[in-house]
């Protein structure tokens, strides 16, 4: 069985490629990797739900179509079909809208010892966010 690698902001996730839609993967595996679950109210992640008009194209219960997911959630996507790898991210317009709110988006990244650290660990404090490279 071929594998499909899906890259999002939380990292890269390997799925078994299943025969559904353009890029079918197990719905359960997709949900645990990305946080997005198909419910009656639509595609939901935490408190955010995106309405799904054509739920038959999105999922057959067992599998979810990653290509349809990207279209419905309005994300941008780069597909390398020959290498079975897909990256999805924020579109320029939605990133610009988010930046204009001036709300500091939280993120979670590993520190040098592999422990996960989030911006929200420093709530109620002033934060200097420094980006640098060791080269």
């Amino acid at each position: 069985m071929t594998q499909l690698t899906v890259i999002d902001e939380s990292g890269s996730h390997a799925f078994a490629h299943v025969g559904f839609g353009e890029m079918g993967v197990g719905a359960k595996e997709f949900a645990s990797a990305t946080g997005w679950t198909l419910k009656a109210e639509g595609l939901c992640k935490g408190e955010i739900c995106v309405p799904v008009r054509n739920s038959a194209a999105m999922s057959n219960g067992e599998a979810i179509d990653v290509a349809e997911f990207v279209r419905v959630t309005g994300r941008s996507m780069v597909v390398d079909a020959s290498r079975n790898i897909v990256a999805m991210g924020e579109q320029a317009s939605s990133r610009a809208t988010a930046m204009a709110t001036l709300d500091a988006s939280s993120f979670t990244l590993p520190d040098i010892n592999g422990n996960l650290v989030s911006l929200s660990d420093f709530a109620k404090r002033k934060k200097l966010l420094l980006a640098w490279s060791s080269w």
């Binding site: 902001e9 500091a104 990244l109 980006a131 490279s133």
Partner: peptide, 26 residues
Amino acid sequence: VLIDTMHIVADLYGIVNVPAALWIDE
């Protein structure tokens, strides 16, 4: 000190070069 191989922070905060800094309040 966090490791960001995927440039997640650059994407979120409009960072186009390093070293760069921005301020986030309480």
